[in-house]
Amino acid sequence: MNIEVLSERDAEAVILPIPAAAALPDAPLAMPTQRLEAPQALTVLRGLFGAARRTVNH
């Protein structure tokens, strides 16, 4: 990234308003949540390796 880091206050000062015409069209579409059942085998696998959670970043 080559963006210079601004402070939050600086950024607020330079943020231009987005024109109202840029708002997405209002045309809702139903998007039902799909069912994806978990197989039992995974529960066993997770149990074998423990469930300690950590966040890893390279």
Partner: peptide, 28 residues
């Protein structure tokens, strides 16, 4: 990130002005 949000607002306005994209260019 604040500086990215500011950049997006700036470049969106520029893009809109250059393309005359009103009604077919959106930002959310």
């Amino acid at each position: 990130r604040p500086e990215v949000i500011a950049g997006e607002a700036y470049w969106f306005n520029r893009l809109m002005a250059e393309t005359g994209g009103e009604g077919r260019l959106f930002y959310r």
